[in-house]
Amino acid sequence: MSSLRLPDGFTDVFVSRFVQLDGLRLHAVTGGDGPPLLLVGGWPQTWYAWREVMPALAREHTVVAVDSRGAGLSGKPDDGYDAGTLAADLVALMAALGHDRFDVVGHDIGMWTGYALAADHPERVGRLVVVDAVIPGLTPIPSVFSPAAVNQRLWHFGFNRLTDLNEELVRGREHLFFGHQFATKAATPIPAYAVDVYVDAIVADPRGLRASFAYYRALDETIAQNEQRKETRLTLPVLAVGGARYSGALVADTMRLAADDVTGVVIDDCGHYVAEEQPARFIEILRDFLGGRSASELPAR
């Protein structure tokens, strides 16, 4: 982590580590003391997306910020990018770290994984926080001829699912393609050095670009799983956080289709990348929820 720009004192608390599972190596950054808290990032990011909130959370939690299969320094096998397999990976990771029960915060495709974790492994997850995304197979499918503003947010779903052409078009232009994602989804610009960390992690591994699209190529499987998952409603407390200038209340609306105890929070002046755009506000919200109050008791903001 010495080459990364990090908050003061970060490396005094956190360590980078690899955990070897059955045929898969996962990378995580861990630190802190208290009840375990798993942070699951989104596309096309790594554990680094949580850097601004991790020190505060580590004062009250043992924090595990993971690179999921296919991301960052974790292994990039040819398959296993459906939400169910990603969730099973993280149950195995947390067990290997000595955590049989834990809370989960998932952003973007990490929200898909977080939902699968809570649904498939209810005995493992205490509280679930989902951040600024929709869930394929749960959220109603938008029309092909959606308004331009909706298409601007969601066009990458179709592009990323292509078999080969997307890789051919993006290879050598990764900073253009992924940089556009960050530039158009954030209300407060993500620092250039952070965008470089995410894009360079994809470029550095010859399997990185393929793996970055693999989550979307597995969507048929993930959708089929979620259509089964939603038959059994979640009963654990769920906090659904959206950026006012991106997904907003749609995050909570999505989770209410699958869970009974949901509180929605919409953060003003915020786009898709809540933990980086509004870290102080996000920390406050997480502390309230993770501190023991049920979602139904937590005042919406």
Rank of each mutant, 00 (worst) to 15 (best):
M1H: 10
L6I: 14
D8M: 11
D8T: 15
V13S: 02
F14P: 01
S16F: 09
F18H: 15
L24P: 02
R25G: 08
R25F: 08
H27Y: 06
A28H: 01
V29C: 04
T30N: 01
D33V: 14
T46A: 07
T46E: 03
T46W: 00
Y48K: 07
W50Q: 01
P55T: 05
D67A: 02
G70F: 00
A71E: 01
S74R: 05
P77V: 08
D79M: 10
G80R: 06
G80V: 12
G80W: 04
D82M: 12
D82R: 15
A88L: 11
D89Q: 09
V91C: 10
L97S: 02
L97C: 07
H99F: 13
D103R: 02
V104F: 01
V105L: 02
G106D: 02
D108F: 00
D108Y: 05
D108R: 04
M111K: 01
A119I: 05
R124C: 14
R127M: 06
V129N: 01
D132Q: 07
G137K: 03
T139K: 13
P140D: 12
P142H: 07
P147Y: 04
Q152H: 10
Q152P: 00
N160C: 13
T163P: 05
E167P: 08
R173D: 11
F178S: 06
A183D: 14
K185G: 05
A186Q: 11
A194G: 07
I202E: 02
D205W: 00
P206G: 13
L209D: 03
L219M: 15
E221W: 10
E231D: 14
T235K: 10
L239I: 07
A240V: 07
V241L: 11
V241K: 00
Y246L: 08
T254E: 03
T254W: 05
V265E: 04
V266N: 03
I267C: 11
G271S: 00
G271E: 06
P279A: 11
R281H: 12
E284V: 14
E284K: 15
L286R: 06
F289R: 02
L290R: 04
R293V: 15
S296C: 12
L298K: 07
P299R: 13
R301P: 13
